[in-house]
């Protein structure tokens, strides 16, 4: 999803769906985040108008929760584990490898919006360390060849 092609019809459909609910802000934002991969900053004022709250309050909520993002993310969001177990099992070099292969630093998104690289503390699958997630799929017992294979599998050329 690139910032240029925001589907405004879809966005207003989501807003309309939640407008009348009582505590609608969070579910609404979740659905937008889900649908677009991020919350387009331009949508804040539209949401505010619909829910009759201050735009700046919505921004406050978005920036408070790690689950919301104002920046568009890649099609695949990598969450590389930096927890203790993974660290012991060489998680650091796995991360370094991913960084060089994708040309991204932590928190960055590639220009083609294919990948976003994030790190996280303990994915809760320590037995499989070192681990990472691609969107909602776990990958464990990572080794350099396995990493290369996973990245290749999700790359643009592969599609």
């Amino acid at each position: 999803m690139t910032p240029k092609d925001i589907d405004w019809t879809r966005l207003s459909a989501i807003i309309d769906k939640h407008k009348a609910e009582r505590w609608s802000l969070i579910p609404l934002l979740q659905e937008i985040q889900e649908a677009f991969g991020f919350i387009p900053p331009e949508s804040i004022e539209i949401i505010a108008d619909a829910l009759k709250i201050f735009p700046v309050e919505i921004q406050g909520v978005i920036t408070f929760y790690a689950g919301f993002s104002l920046l568009p993310k890649g099609k695949y969001v990598l969450k590389v584990c930096r927890g203790t177990a993974c660290h012991v099992k060489g998680g650091r070099s796995i991360l370094r490898l991913i960084k060089t292969q994708l040309g991204l630093e932590e928190g960055e998104t590639g220009k083609d919006y294919q990948f976003t690289l994030e790190t996280t503390a303990c994915l809760g699958a320590c037995a499989l360390a070192p681990t990472m997630m691609v969107n909602r799929t776990y990958f464990g017992k990572l080794s350099p060849p396995k990493v290369t294979a996973v990245l290749a599998h999700h790359s643009k050329d592969k599609e």
């Binding site: 900053p41 804040i44 004022e45 201050f54 735009p55 700046v56 309050e57 921004q59 406050g60 920036t63 408070f64």
Partner: peptide, 26 residues
């Protein structure tokens, strides 16, 4: 509605929408 808390923890600050200067906010 010019300002609200943004972020949390050490980074937490009252900010304007899109963190613009006050004169471009509400």
């Amino acid at each position: 509605g010019a300002i609200d808390y943004n972020f949390r923890g050490f980074k937490s600050r009252p900010l304007t929408l899109h963190d613009l200067p006050l004169e471009q906010s509400n």
